[in-house]
Design a protein around this nucleic acid. Sequence first.
DNA 1: CTGAAAGCGCTAACAG
DNA 2: CTGTTAGCGCTTTCAG
Lengths: 330, 330
Amino acid sequence: MKKNIPTIRDVAAAAGVSTATISKFINGTQRFSPAVEARIAEVIGQMGYRSNPLAQSMITGKTKTVGLSVLDVTNPHFTSIVKGANRVAQAHGYTVLLVDTEENPGREQALLEALSRRVDGLIIFSRMPDSELEWLAGLDKPLVFFGRLPRMTLPTVASDDHRGAYMMTRHLVTLGHKRFAYMGFSKSRRDEERMGGVKECLAAHGLELTVYDAAAPSAQEGERLCSEMMLGAGHPDALVCYNDLMALGFMKAAQSLGFRIPADISVAGVDNIVYGNYTSPPLTTVDLHSERMGVAAMEKLLDTIAGRPTEPFTLIEPQLILRGSTANRN
Amino acid sequence: MKKNIPTIRDVAAAAGVSTATISKFINGTQRFSPAVEARIAEVIGQMGYRSNPLAQSMITGKTKTVGLSVLDVTNPHFTSIVKGANRVAQAHGYTVLLVDTEENPGREQALLEALSRRVDGLIIFSRMPDSELEWLAGLDKPLVFFGRLPRMTLPTVASDDHRGAYMMTRHLVTLGHKRFAYMGFSKSRRDEERMGGVKECLAAHGLELTVYDAAAPSAQEGERLCSEMMLGAGHPDALVCYNDLMALGFMKAAQSLGFRIPADISVAGVDNIVYGNYTSPPLTTVDLHSERMGVAAMEKLLDTIAGRPTEPFTLIEPQLILRGSTANRN
DNA sequence: CTGAAAGCGCTAACAG
DNA sequence: CTGTTAGCGCTTTCAG
């Protein structure tokens, strides 16, 4: 099974030319006499030679590869981003190397460090504290970050979470809801923005907000927090969740506790993951345009790599998606 | 922004030792006098030196990195596999580089080719025709393949799809269903096995099967095929889908056409994706133990890389998950 | 204990 | 058109 992988030297020898010639031929850097080209092509063909990208990268400093690091490949929001990024990268001849960091946040730095040296640029979705963000710049690679940064030192792509949450809340207020709850995930950088949007809107209408905090942005946590929220004295009549996953979990648990959605409580999520379509009732949500975020981030990265000028900050506008999980109380 | 990344030579010079010493120190290959070690550590620290993994890999031939190629990161079945594989890899100090091939099957070979030279081994989920499988072996890398192979030339991990489908069908027959339909996805290697399981069971009970074929293993296709299946003369009373995604789509479409599930038709999927829990009714399915498959594949790969002996073939047993989308007709 | 030197596989001037 | 000659940044004998 140990086929000796041929090197450029083997090929050169077999074809009776120099390694430089092979190199130039492979990369199309230069043309040669038909006789030589034919010979080279033939030898390469029968030896099954492929240039070693590592050696190639080491000298050119280019890998035609970009890294994309996400928090959880299991979350549809992130996989949509991946889809978008992938499409753009492929169109430009780049390969995307995906890394899932959530399994072990402690290893994130090591992971990114390792990845950064193997790619031409990085797109990062991270929960890293701002202090460590400095460190990212030290990687000395073109880099695009997801989310709003306090001091915008890195090129970023972000959704307008505050606005999305505000819009959703505004809608629910208009529908006549009075007792609001927000199921958040405070470990996320964006939780604050979303909760802020909800609060700001409620404040403007003189309404209160009860906040619940999940340990993970998952359906399971949504289920877990449900009984706490619904079985106290006077449950809320409108719930905005940090994301759709949590909303899905909540709805299931609420329904199995005997509550009707949206009759007893309106539920809304954020992300517009595709599975929100398949629940009963289907989930009202805020579309953050995940895929478009992936596209924008990859375009920005590729521009940076190519030395093209780019906007340092792209904000993607949210959009309300109204479905059956919210009702009119007027 | 252009920090000159320090090389081993810079460090050696600054520390007043040779590059060889630095190299050995970094890799812990050898110990040195406390004085020297302290000096080196200090210099490395303040220069922020990190060895270049490319150069390192080029010479050692090891990357401490493995590639995992999946058909669609958007499909929960695959992301579960990723989770499992990731966990094992990290536990062994390996980094997983994930690649999504479905966007462009035509580019799959190029993608794998590129990836293979950058990693110590590969785990591949592919729709590649058997003829091209040969080519994979030619990559000359430790490699684990998902699915049953005709001529088992590669180490593989597979679910027992035939058995799972048989079990599910058996259960539906026992429940008293008479008119069976199978919604397949013939482009997949596993479709045949699943359909075979269904057919074999039905044949044993003298029952017929109507087959529908989807263009993609997606919820959207499930929705699309629904009207065709349900609005003809005499619709089926039991449907087994190639996967849960298709089942989800079908259920939604059927319900919006006014059918009740499972009263009018029992629906079952395969994969046991988490979202099957959040539909109404929740989806009956066959758990293929995706995550366990990822674990098994990664263990097998790591064993191969380390030169440890391994079973060439691992079969993961399926398990029936009974939920509300199937009913008793007796 | 420490260093000199020979490359890994490939590209990039620079000659011819 | 084609070849020579330096390395890229690092590891690894092999001496000292």
